[in-house]
Amino acid sequence: MSTTSRTRLRKTRLILFLLLPATMLVHAPTFAEYGDVVINNFSDGAGIRPVVFPHWFHRIRFRCKVCHSDLGFKFQAGGNQINMLKIIDGEYCGGCHNGEVAWSVENCQLCHSGATGTRTQVHHNTLSKLDPASAAKAATTAAPPEAPANQPPAANQGRP
């Protein structure tokens, strides 16, 4: 294939990928997995992609109590005030994502993989179907009023 046709292909691809998420917004339910958590407390503000935490992937490997008791994660999406310094210090995700139990946090793009602008929430939760406004509010109140002084160092990663 010539360079022109490849460029064209790439353009078409780009247009498709730009258009598709826009069309998906119209259809409120995404194809996200049940229980997928998006954490976007600071990410959008810091110019990086929000974090997607796949519950399903982790529950294949760990009982709930490992994170929600031993590591102290509250049962609240966005309610844990996680930042990169805490993770590097071995708290929260850093309990495992330290290159020993699981891959280390220099693999920024594996967590910071969400579509920009996706708000903090647990996907497909019942409350969001009943009362989207209060579900959104719950996620907002979970977030702090402002980003903490300790900006995540990975804040510069992931943006083309």
Partner: peptide, 8 residues
């Protein structure tokens, strides 16, 4: 950025 500019 991590080494030179970040909060770290």
């Amino acid at each position: 950025k991590l080494i030179e500019e970040s909060s770290a």
